[in-house]
Amino acid sequence: MSTPPPPPEQPPPIPPQPTAYPYPNPQSPSAQNPYAQPAAGDPPTAPQQANPYAVQPGHGYPPPAAPPAAGGNAAGRAVLWAVVGAVVASAAWAGALLLTGGFGSSADLRGYRAPANLCSSADYSSFKDEYPVDDSSPTKNVMKDPALDQSFCSLSLKKTSSSYGDAYLSMEVDLHRKTDPAPEFTATWKNYGDSHSDYDVTPVQGIGDEAYLVTQDTSKGSTTSGSRYATLAVRDGWTTFTMYYSAYFSSYDSDTDPPTLDDVTGWLKTDTKSTLEQLKD
């Protein structure tokens, strides 16, 4: 009887190749069953790392962490440091919220107050040369509330020869005690020209944290018809202040021309700065 030929030599197993994808090939048996044992004659495979965040079928929570491999505590130390890192990150997040007011910090009012009589507390002296006659009965009111303090003043501006008001000036200061007015203030005044036609909006530097000048001129060069309007709105911290000017030429003293918008906006800037200083404690 002849001796059977020896079986052909098997090629050596191909070692696993490095890859940037950290999870096993989904087509491999080890990916489908990470605990399956290799069949006889199959090349050995590297043990696959369990994914601690994978959700098993029929369960809503991650499976328990696999026990550390024999011969060392590397897996245990990795789990410990992961927990420590999560605690540190949570503490940093909580600290950031505390510093930025996420848990309800006190209002940043910058020392401003809302006086009972804003008409006598505000400065509008820049308008006196054009309108020297004082308003004997200006409109004023004040509101005090845990969420908002508000003071308002409205008065007529008169020339010497006028029987009625030639122009009008209004002021309002708001102390926001519960919420930061910055987002709504910016949205309202920066975009004023989008929601109101024929108005020009200009950012103003050097007054508070942010300020906007809103103007309109419908006179078209006439001094007897049309109107001119200007508002300077300022936010300083959680305090907002506005000063409004309006003049209607049909009732304006015909002996003199009304002031230009450049004149009015210059007066608004000067008197707003002065008034804000006077409204500080």
Rank of each mutant, 00 (worst) to 15 (best):
V88W: 04
V88P: 00
L99P: 02
V87Y: 03
G76F: 10
V83E: 07
A86S: 11
S105M: 07
A74I: 10
N73K: 12
G102V: 06
V79R: 00
W81D: 04
G76C: 02
F103W: 08
L99I: 08
V79Q: 02
A94G: 07
R77W: 06
V79S: 01
A86K: 06
A75C: 00
G101M: 12
L99D: 06
G85M: 05
A74M: 12
L98M: 12
F103H: 09
G85Q: 08
A94C: 15
S105V: 07
T100W: 03
W81N: 00
G102H: 05
V79N: 01
A94F: 08
A96T: 11
A92G: 12
V88D: 02
A82W: 07
G85P: 03
G101F: 07
G104D: 13
V84Y: 05
N73S: 15
L97T: 00
G85D: 01
V84G: 06
L97Y: 10
G76Y: 03
G104V: 10
W93T: 15
G95I: 03
L98S: 14
V83I: 15
S106D: 13
L97N: 07
V87L: 15
A92H: 05
G102C: 13
G85E: 03
G102W: 03
V79D: 02
V83D: 05
G101R: 04
A86D: 02
G76N: 08
L97S: 05
G95M: 12
G104P: 04
A75R: 02
A89H: 08
W81A: 01
V84M: 08
G76R: 06
G76T: 06
A86L: 15
A74W: 06
A86E: 04
W93K: 12
S106R: 15
L80P: 02
A74D: 12
W81F: 15
A86W: 01
F103I: 09
W93H: 01
A96M: 11
V83W: 11
R77G: 00
W81L: 08
V79L: 12
L99S: 13
A86V: 12
V83Q: 08
V87K: 03
A89K: 11
V87A: 13
